[in-house]
Amino acid sequence: MTMAQRQRQEAAPAGASFPDLRWFPPGTHITVRGLKKSFDGNPVYVGFDIDLPKGKIVSIFGPNGCGKSTFINMVAGLLPIDAGQILFEGKTIADTRIGYVFQNYREALFPWLRAIDNVHYPLRLMGIPKAERDRRIAELVAGFDLKFDLNRYPYQLSGGQQQTVSIMRSLVIEPEVLFLDEPFSALDYEMTLIMRDQLQKVLVARGVTTVLVSHDLEEAVYLADKVLMLTRRPSRIADYMDVDLPRPRDPSTLTDARFIELKARTLEVFQNAVRAS
């Protein structure tokens, strides 16, 4: 058992029993029940429940320090939880294949490996032979519209290109769930627009369950099927809103009446959440 698996197992409490066999609706991938977490006695989550849908993109948005990143890190098994239960279609995180994209791509990629070898790395950890790795990566690359050479080292690539490599590295293992922690916040606006569209294209094509933390309201709404709005600490659900905009969305969506309406609503919820402190 790897250390990560062991940690995740420790993080997930050993089956509190829920008598109701159908206690979450069909189409749900991730169920969070009774989640508790505090830092140095400061409660961040005090009994938090949520269902995250399968094959959809959920973005999480809320005031600064409301525990957005804490939430996905707990769900991804990077941070131990104090109490509660997080299951992926009934499985614990240890039995779930996940991908994680960090905000700081510069510190997440391995600069001693070429970009292509960074993408190979998780497959090598899984013990997959070279020919099969090459085949999977070729298939993955086909879904991306790459305009740079993967044989370069990460530090020879631009920020957007590096984050693209990060995203490829997290998707190459065909994860059941993909976590992204403010993936574009270190990029300039022009690059952000390009990256959003690329990410949307790949995620929708692959139908992977995605949890995205964003500090940008526009981005949160633009990419998501559902927007989870959190309150200030201790975090509660301020709103859990469906985004019914058709896909594929493109920059013209940003001026679409429905988009503006949804964005206005999330902004209002956000402002209430900030004021309520």
Partner: peptide, 11 residues
């Protein structure tokens, strides 16, 4: 972050 990245990939 790099150590965490390796960990999350199951290293």
């Amino acid at each position: 972050t790099r150590i965490l990245a390796a960990k999350v990939m199951g290293a």
